[in-house]
């Protein structure tokens, strides 16, 4: 399973490195969202700075939808999905591999976005340990959830509209937990974010487990 996951993650990341869709499209999209928040809320840094954690995570959530769609788009052309199914790879491994690739892409995006928020909103990135931990845990949960719903909707003709509707309400606890953990860290109280970090961990463990369990029938479906 782990070897298969490694193979699939390597394949997805290699495709990403060569096609540069995440770098050329998803990261600029996230940057545009952060800029637009600035326009909507006015240039006042005193307003933007306390909101930066929430705005950052909304941008990440929206980008995660794009990354998920991209992750399944690469399987749809040239019969790649059939190839993946016939390759004899463990479906749980395929799930973990694809989720890991999206995880890596999102972590890169978050690093760039955090710098953008620091520059544009004047946010002082304090409590780096908690910030990184929240990013890691939240992104595991988001990537796993994205892969489950991505596989559910990828073969449907209405996938572009259905995936966000399915994904966003379920990811609400991640938005809350990650935002609160970041707010605590940014406000100089990293100690009080422990509860939120464990909430993110529970979410991540739960959805990775569900994904490993249900990916086999999902892959067969389409």
């Amino acid at each position: 399973m782990w070897r298969d996951a490694w193979l699939v993650a390597g394949k997805d990341l290699r495709i990403e490195l060569r096609s540069r869709v995440a770098i050329n499209q998803v990261i600029p999209f996230a940057a545009a969202v952060v800029l637009l928040f600035g326009l909507a809320l006015g240039p006042n840094r005193a307003v933007l700075e306390p909101l930066s954690a929430g705005l950052f995570w909304v941008a990440v959530l929206l980008s995660c939808i794009l990354a998920t769609q991209r992750s399944f788009a690469v399987e749809s052309s040239g019969g790649a999905r059939d190839g993946l199914r016939l390759s004899g790879l463990d479906p749980a491994g395929v799930f973990l591999g694809k989720a890991a690739a999206v995880f890596v892409e999102l972590v890169v995006l978050e690093a760039v976005l955090a710098l953008g928020v620091a520059v544009l909103y004047g946010t002082h990135l304090a409590g780096a340990g908690v910030l990184v931990a929240a990013c890691a845990l939240a992104t595991v949960g988001l990537a796993a959830l994205g892969m489950i719903y991505g596989a559910v909707s990828s073969s449907l003709r209405v996938k572009e509209t259905l995936l966000p509707l399915l994904f966003l309400p379920v990811s609400a606890p991640v938005l809350l937990g990650a935002t609160k953990a970041w707010q605590d860290a940014l406000a100089g109280r990293p100690g009080s974010s422990g509860g939120w970090l464990s909430l993110l961990a529970v979410f991540a463990v739960l959805y990775v487990t569900i994904g490993v369990a249900v990916f086999e029938p999902l892959l067969e479906d389409t």
Partner: peptide, 22 residues
């Protein structure tokens, strides 16, 4: 039926987490 069942499972597992976090 299968994809709906999986979606229902994913949704229902979220209910306590949503309530707790909110």
């Amino acid at each position: 039926a299968r994809r709906s069942a999986i979606a229902a499972l994913v949704a229902f597992v979220d209910v306590p987490i949503v309530y707790f976090s909110v």
